[in-house]
Design a protein around this nucleic acid. Structure first.
Length: 722
RNA sequence: GCUGCUGUAGCUCAGUGGUAGAGCGCCUCCUUGGUAAGGAGGAGGUCAUGGGUUCAACCCCCAUCAGCAGCUCCA
């Protein structure tokens, strides 16, 4: 007897040997038609799964469930794999999982697949779907399965099998039973009942991918497909992709003249053009005003720092590959630094061969060093100290990869009392990171960028309040833009790991404080153990844009590490010295990336307060040109960012031009307006707001700017000048 | 960094082993037109850079640089 408990609590009884499909059929034939798989006791299984002598929690999965869709996507990958193997018999399959929006299959095939091939593959897939063959699972004992795979000679599948757990390995046949003419694949499953159930699909692209992501392995072809419950949803997804393509900040940034990247300047180094600079400045000003209200103190720090600053912070040479190479103004500094790197790499022990050879050379080149001597057999720690002492006279510099060490040194520049804390130092700090060439893209992944950075130095007791304020500030910043759809991720330490610095009670304090602040703010959040930095727990803000894409923006991080490394202290009420705790936080992350995201979020149609050009004055003809200029001057005097179009074009062309530039307000100035001393206002959305006087228009704009109105993209501004 | 694709006018892109084209933009002129493209004329290119093959290279080959997609990475 099998007792089946449905999600609504109903319990059904079935005889032993019943399949999931039969259980569904008994619930409802309609449901049976839609069924793709079942979730039994929390595990997703094939509908062909049999049960005997047990009690099960049972849920049917259809296209309405993410898990059902997931199963269909996986099955679709099998269908595609079969199609490709049919068309190119030499194909070796590697690995074909479902992913967001669809699936991919990695294949080893010498013929490079092209979009023309996609059509052939899809055509073959459609035939397979039409044949409506069942997916049939069978299992073999591990050793038998391995023999079978060895005989087939696909080393990738053998590798997959070696990595798989369990006493048996499962295979899926696309057909009623295994046989020489049936497609089959080593696969954990589960799958939909038959090939007609995989939904609507399309092969999207092919790209290179390494086996296990290992660049030393052969490059495979990764064929991506997308799968949806129906053609309608497939179409919607393709439309979404088209929409995302249209919003691409690289394209809009070019069209609207916001920024450029010049190979002569350098890959990943953004040049903000005047119109882009307007957006950035407006954001910086809005943030700055709020920071001042909250007791932050703006600081400025240089773009480079001595290498020893980063030796102290630990960022050098740990992140060496991600930094621009250090600047040296002497060979001595360069060579001493190399010696230092060698000693640092020695793992604490005595000098290695290279280090000894370099020292020989240094000792002869620089007599004063040779005279001072170098303890080659002493612990690395001693050698490092010695080298740093020498470098103190003449060291290299590093383009700063982060602002924290500079801010730390500002904190350390004067004695601090507990009465001075918290110290909140803020800076739009530009940092440089040498991202891999393949990573650099537009404004969202660059090599030089400006963080809206701040560091709070406080006591442990103050930490909860400071974290709460950081989180509140992040919410304020996002709300200012109208980005109100976000969640947060709390990164906690892994309690079983010992990689974390600092004492457990401080971690508990910080983690609880972050959790409490997030809860108090009533935000959607997830807690993720093991996601903390080694130096402290953190909170990341993940924001949804206008078309539903998620971006990680701000972050609040507790740091017990840097105060320790730099020996920061303050004098407490007890007249003893104490170590402050540090909070790193960025609201938007970097201004480059954030503006890039905003361009896509608003599709270039920025709200009035951010719009590079807020209004364009368009004369209807030369007869109204003088009044148009008067209107233009009035706007400019009112600090509106305005342009004048007195060109010989017709009014339609002028309006089109301004609309394409996403200018919020177009002021149409003809003889009627000149006569009545009014302006006729049209929005970039094409809405005619009618006529009003200049004071009315300017007041409405001022109001809209001050309230940062029209934050929701695609909607009308709050203020209506008409 | 890896693999693949791409690089032609300011932008978007055609094109051919015998030294180059369109549309938009730009300039000039005509037009004085009322809510998304008025008309005509003109200027503008070392065909990414450096090598090679060839009688001849924008085109074929190699390298470099840059862009795109994916992989890997992001303190």
């Amino acid at each position: 007897m099998v007792k089946v408990r449905l999600p609504d609590g109903t319990v059904l009884e079935h005889p032993d040997g019943v399949t999931a499909a039969q259980i569904v059929e008994a619930i409802s034939p309609n449901l049976a038609r839609a069924a793709l798989a079942a979730k039994v006791n929390g595990r997703i299984v094939d509908l062909a799964t049999r049960f005997a002598n047990e009690e099960i929690d049972f849920r049917v999965l259809t296209f309405k469930d993410d898990e059902g869709l997931y199963v269909a996507r996986h099955s679709c990958a099998h269908v595609m794999a079969e199609a490709i193997c049919d068309l190119w018999p030499g194909t070796k399959l590697v690995y074909g999982p479902p992913v967001e929006n669809g699936f991919y299959y990695d294949i080893d095939l010498d013929h490079p697949l092209t979009p023309e091939d996609f059509e052939r593959i899809e055509a073959r897939m459609k035939e397979i779907v039409k044949e409506d063959r069942p997916f049939t699972r069978y299992e073999l004992p591990r050793d038998e399965a391995m023999r079978k795979l060895e005989a087939e000679g696909n080393e990738y599948k053998l590798d997959n099998a070696r990595r798989a757990d369990g006493e048996t390995l499962s295979f899926y046949v696309t057909g009623a039973e295994p046989g020489p003419r049936c497609f089959e694949d080593l696969c954990r499953g589960p799958h939909v009942p038959s090939t007609s159930k995989i939904g609507a699909f399309k092969i999207m692209q092919v790209a290179g991918a390494y086996h296990h992501g290992d660049a030393s392995k052969k490059m495979l072809q990764r064929v991506y497909g997308t799968t949806w419950p129906s053609k309608k949803e497939l179409r919607q997804h393709l439309q979404f992709l088209e929409e995302a393509r249209k919003r691409d900040h690289r394209r809009i940034g070019q069209e609207l003249g916001l920024f450029t990247v010049d190979p002569l300047v350098g890959t990943g180094l953004v040049l903000w053009k005047p119109r882009g600079a307007v957006i950035r400045r407006a954001l910086e000003q809005a943030i700055l005003e709020e920071l001042l209200r909250r007791g932050y103190q703006p600081v400025y720090t240089p773009h480079i720092g001595k290498l020893d600053l980063y030796r102290t912070s630990g960022h050098f040479p740990y992140y060496k590959e991600a930094q621009y190479p250090p600047l040296f103004d002497s060979d001595r500094a360069r060579e001493l630094n190399t010696l230092w790197e060698m000693a640092a790499a020695a793992g604490g022990g005595p000098a290695g061969e290279q280090e000894r050879a370099l020292w020989e050379k240094l000792a002869s080149t620089y007599p004063e060093l040779g005279k001072a001597g170098y303890p080659l057999d002493a612990p690395a720690e001693d050698r490092l100290t010695r080298i740093r002492a020498w470098l103190a006279q003449d060291d290299g510099y590093l383009l700063k990869p982060m602002n924290c060490p500079h801010h730390v040194r500002i904190f350390a520049s004067e004695p601090r009392s507990y009465r001075d804390l918290p110290v909140r130092l803020a800076e739009f700090g530009t940092v440089y990171r040498y991202e891999q060439s393949g990573e650099v893209s537009g404004m969202t992944r660059v090599r030089g960028f400006t963080q809206d950075d701040a560091h709070v130095f406080c006591t442990n007791e103050q930490l909860p309040e400071e974290l709460a304020d950081c989180i509140d500030l992040s919410r304020f910043a996002l709300g200012m833009i109208g980005l109100n759809d976000y969640r947060v991720r709390i990164g906690l330490r892994d309690p079983d790991s010992d990689k974390y610095i600092g004492v457990a009670e401080n971690w508990d304090l910080a983690e609880n404080a972050l959790r409490a602040a997030v809860r108090a703010a009533d935000m959607t959040y997830s807690e993720e153990e093991g996601e903390a930095a080694f130096y402290g727990p953190k909170v990341d803000f993940i924001v949804k844009d206008a078309i539903g894409r998620e971006w990680q923006l701000g972050t609040v991080q507790v740091d017990y590490n840097l105060p320790e490394r730099f020996g920061l202290e303050y004098v407490g009420a007890d007249n003893q010295t104490h170590r402050p705790v540090m909070v790193h936080r960025a609201l938007f992350g970097s201004l480059e990336r954030f503006v890039g995201i905003l361009i896509e979020h608003f599709a270039g149609a920025f709200p009035l307060w951010l719009a590079p050009i807020q209004a364009t004055v368009c004369s209807v003809s030369e007869k109204s040109a003088d009044y148009a200029r008067e209107v233009f001057d009035l706007c400019r005097k009112a600090n509106l960012r305005v342009e004048l179009d007195n060109s010989g074009e017709r009014i339609g062309a002028k309006i089109r031009k301004a609309t394409l530039m996403k200018v919020p307000y177009i002021l149409v100035i003809g003889e009627q307006e000149a006569q009545h001393r009014t302006v006729n206002v049209r929005t970039r959305e094409g809405k005619q707001l009618g006529s009003c006087t200049m004071p009315e228009f300017l007041a409405a704009c001022a109001q809209e700017i001050v309230t940062r109105g029209a934050a929701a993209p695609g909607e009308e501004g709050q203020a209506s000048p008409a």
